[in-house]
Design a protein around this nucleic acid. Structure first.
Lengths: 250, 250
DNA sequence: GAGTGGTCTAGACCACAAG
DNA sequence: TTGTGGTCTAGACCACTCT
């Protein structure tokens, strides 16, 4: 798709650098060359490279600091939880830390709907089911579906680490960066309430997630059911700028 | 509160300019002086002023474009709805446009809890209750509480415009910029289900909102109940940068 | 045609982290 | 002590909007 006006240099530099992270030429934790070296390499000025680097920092791809340099962000359990786990205690406002209670993983053919949702010709999926607890009380049910081609061999690592996304990055080189969720209120059916140890008909917060990686591929479908008696799912809303465009892979 | 290292010039310029908007020296729709004039006025370079202006544009306070100049953002019904109304149709993905069905406004003393939540010595509140419909079917119940001191005389304007925030900006000079929401699943009680025309015990998505204005004051408390059978509340999650600080009023 | 913001460059000085 | 990113300045050229 050609443009009449060429992309600005800083956007082209950003796309090229994002591509290096996607292709794992630059890997999580790795330190980048300094601004002048990058500028020389891309044939632009240091100020232009800086604009690209600052943008990538804002997108959560890079970490920058004086003295230490610029490094590719390596996902930690803490920030992953903070970014993607939104349940907070109603009284304290603190996070309801989800500790594992039980887990089950299996492989099966993808349903027609899953194939559509993954936007690829995905034949098999891994299904990971978890019950989460806090203080001995179960409060969440999670069912993740992962494309088998991307996560081949994941079942050998069972039981999986509590924090899934840092593990996926470390083990498979797939970095979950963004997710879209759809929330609704439902009545708990027997299959859910039994695992959560509540009566049938208890209201549950149902959350459907589509998680995307660096290359904007959908890499996980997740359906969660939460008990929200003493906690709630927190959202921050703001008038946002429409200038956030995802740079493609070059 | 002094700092060991002084604030950077661009942050001080940003604080000063935000203060002008808060104090309504610069009003929604107004055009700002150009970058060189602002730079001269604040005694900094054009590049420094630009950094402050770009930051304010990202915060949704300013709109900038070549040829037209920089203007203070004036809230429109469309973008207000897009930013703060998150319900989308499950099939089409389109917005479930909330049309008014009925409305009631009254004034009463603030409860102890409301006084705590408003973080001010607020004695009276206006209570605005609305039932929203789409295609003739009621789907949402809203109960807003507004500090009486900020919105004196609002009851004279009843029935209020469909889109509340642009009206509040126009009429009272209060710009809602951000909101924090807490979501939970509840069983509909008689008082809710009657207005929504569904059976008692229908699962409802309960949303508690605290809306803040430019000066970061809490200017609205809102409790909503949504029917989420054909629709869901959409959220975008991302690893965010921790550098977003709200500049105070100078 | 005049004026605006968007891009790009070049260079100076600073605080901070690491060896 | 060295090197890094953070801040700040100055100036050039361009595309776009409005009149």
């Amino acid at each position: 798709m050609e443009r009449l006006t060429a992309e600005p240099l800083y956007k082209r530099a950003e796309s090229a650098m994002v591509a290096r992270i996607v292709k794992r030429i630059w890997r999580p934790g790795m330190r980048l060359p300094n601004e002048f070296e990058l500028a020389a390499e891309f044939g632009v000025s240091q100020g232009t490279i800086r604009k690209a680097l600052v943008s990538m920092e804002r997108r959560g791809l890079l970490a920058r600091s004086p003295g230490r340099g610029t490094t590719v962000v390596k996902t930690t359990a803490e920030e992953s939880l903070f970014a993607f786990f939104r349940l907070r205690d109603d009284v304290s406002g603190n996070m309801t830390v989800p500790e594992p209670l039980s887990e089950r993983i299996s492989r099966r053919a993808a349903t027609r709907k899953e194939r559509t949702q993954f936007e690829t010709a995905e034949s098999d999926v891994y299904v990971l089911e978890r019950v989460r607890q806090h203080g001995g009380v179960p409060f969440a049910l999670e069912r993740m579906r992962l494309p088998a081609t991307l996560f081949k061999g994941i079942e050998d690592d069972a039981p999986l680490p509590n924090s899934l996304y840092p593990y996926l990055q470390e083990r498979f080189g797939i970095s979950v960066m963004v997710a879209e969720e759809g929330l609704s209120a439902v009545l708990g059916k027997e299959k859910e309430t039994r695992k959560l140890d509540v009566p049938v008909g208890t209201p549950l917060l149902k959350v459907e997630r589509r998680a995307r990686d660096l290359a904007h591929r959908i890499v996980e479908l997740r359906t969660s059911h939460f008990l929200t008696d003493g906690a709630s799912y927190r959202v921050d809303l703001a008038r946002s700028d429409p200038l956030s465009e995802v740079a493609g892979v070059t």
